[in-house]
Amino acid sequence: MTNPFDGIPGADLAYFREQSERFAASGASPAVPRLAATAILLRPDGAVLLMRRPVKMVFGGRWVFPGGSADPIDAEPGGSELEIAARAALREVREETGLVVAAEQLLAWARWVTPEFEPRRFDTYFFIGLVDAETDAVEVNGETEEHRWLTATAALAGYAAGQLSMLPPTVVTLRELADLSTMDAVRAAAVAKDLSSPILPRLP
């Protein structure tokens, strides 16, 4: 995979460079990442759900997939870190959208760790959540200002045009999905994924 910082908007790159230089000058140790989960809800027509976070929230103003930190309740049945993250992903989808995704419709896709220069860091498992119905029924809450169902190609076009502000993991995921034309292709790609070595973005 190419560096996820390649090709991002100039303002975003300048922000990340400033954060990186400030962290390096501080001499501080990187924050310990918190376990988190993200769910890319995928409809049969190829559309995925993107949600714009309020400005005052983490990732404020950005278009993201539903998700958040793992809670103690997610770990109650025990299991591996991946299993805890999967339960967190299903819970976050219910809380943020009102939609229910069956556990068997959740496909492990990727694992990203927030860059070391960020003050708040997450070890985030990304899952594809297959949505059977052609649904647009999303119950948004205070964590979302706006939502859209878009194909990966349309979302990337909005990003390139400066209309949809997104972080590198979101963009990389959309690029991967844009190359897959069917649900079967997505399932096959998910089987081949290796989440044992997380992606830790580094500035070029």
Results as ranks from 00 to 15, higher is better:
residue 119 P to C: 09
residue 90 L to D: 00
residue 38 T to N: 06
residue 54 P to Y: 04
residue 136 D to E: 12
residue 45 D to E: 06
residue 88 A to W: 02
residue 20 S to A: 15
residue 130 L to V: 14
residue 37 A to T: 10
residue 202 R to L: 08
residue 1 M to K: 01
residue 144 T to P: 09
residue 81 E to F: 03
residue 53 R to D: 07
residue 70 A to T: 13
residue 2 T to W: 01
residue 102 A to F: 09
residue 165 S to H: 13
residue 135 T to F: 08
residue 182 T to A: 10
residue 156 L to N: 12
residue 60 G to M: 09
residue 48 V to K: 00
residue 131 V to K: 09
residue 71 D to Q: 13
residue 67 G to R: 07
residue 159 Y to H: 15
residue 172 V to L: 05
residue 3 N to G: 11
residue 3 N to H: 05
residue 151 T to F: 03
residue 116 E to W: 13
residue 11 A to V: 12
residue 73 I to G: 13
residue 66 P to A: 13
residue 191 V to N: 05
residue 105 Q to T: 10
residue 183 M to Y: 00
residue 78 G to A: 04
residue 96 E to Y: 05
residue 74 D to R: 08
residue 114 T to F: 01
residue 66 P to V: 03
residue 196 S to Q: 12
residue 75 A to S: 15
residue 86 A to S: 11
residue 41 L to R: 08
residue 115 P to H: 10
residue 152 A to K: 09
residue 41 L to G: 10
residue 89 A to H: 03
residue 49 L to Y: 09
residue 134 E to T: 01
residue 144 T to W: 03
residue 3 N to M: 02
residue 81 E to D: 11
residue 91 R to V: 11
residue 58 V to M: 12
residue 3 N to A: 06
residue 104 E to H: 15
residue 70 A to M: 10
residue 27 G to W: 01
residue 88 A to H: 05
residue 63 W to L: 04
residue 41 L to N: 04
residue 114 T to S: 15
residue 145 E to M: 12
residue 170 T to Q: 04
residue 50 L to A: 05
residue 69 S to W: 02
residue 88 A to T: 05
residue 31 A to W: 00
residue 135 T to I: 09
residue 19 Q to S: 11
residue 20 S to R: 13
residue 121 R to M: 05
residue 136 D to S: 12
residue 76 E to Q: 14
residue 184 D to R: 10
residue 200 L to D: 03
residue 137 A to R: 12
residue 93 V to K: 09
residue 65 F to R: 02
residue 154 A to K: 14
residue 145 E to T: 14
residue 179 D to Y: 01
residue 118 E to I: 10
residue 62 R to P: 00
residue 154 A to R: 15
residue 84 I to S: 12
residue 48 V to S: 10
residue 202 R to N: 00
residue 89 A to Y: 04
residue 156 L to M: 11
residue 28 A to L: 10
residue 35 L to N: 02
residue 194 D to Q: 10
residue 100 V to C: 13
residue 86 A to V: 00
residue 5 F to W: 10
residue 190 A to P: 05
residue 171 V to K: 14
residue 16 F to M: 08
residue 85 A to Y: 02
residue 163 Q to L: 15
residue 15 Y to R: 15
residue 60 G to E: 00
residue 29 S to Q: 10
residue 43 R to K: 15
residue 9 P to W: 08
residue 148 R to C: 07
residue 97 T to M: 13
residue 117 F to V: 04
residue 27 G to N: 03
residue 97 T to C: 12
residue 146 E to P: 00
residue 40 I to Q: 06
residue 102 A to G: 15
residue 179 D to P: 00
residue 155 A to E: 12
residue 14 A to P: 01
residue 61 G to R: 04
residue 52 R to F: 06
residue 118 E to C: 03
residue 84 I to K: 06
residue 7 G to R: 07
residue 204 P to V: 04
residue 75 A to V: 06
residue 190 A to N: 04
residue 186 V to I: 08
residue 24 A to G: 03
residue 128 I to C: 02
residue 147 H to I: 08
residue 168 P to H: 03
residue 5 F to Q: 04
residue 18 E to K: 15
residue 60 G to H: 06
residue 92 E to M: 13
residue 92 E to V: 03
residue 131 V to N: 12
residue 23 F to V: 03
residue 87 R to M: 07
residue 166 M to G: 01
residue 125 Y to M: 11
residue 156 L to H: 10
residue 71 D to Y: 11
residue 18 E to W: 11
residue 15 Y to F: 14
residue 32 V to S: 14
residue 186 V to D: 02
residue 1 M to P: 09
residue 4 P to F: 02
residue 139 E to N: 09
residue 165 S to N: 11
residue 196 S to R: 14
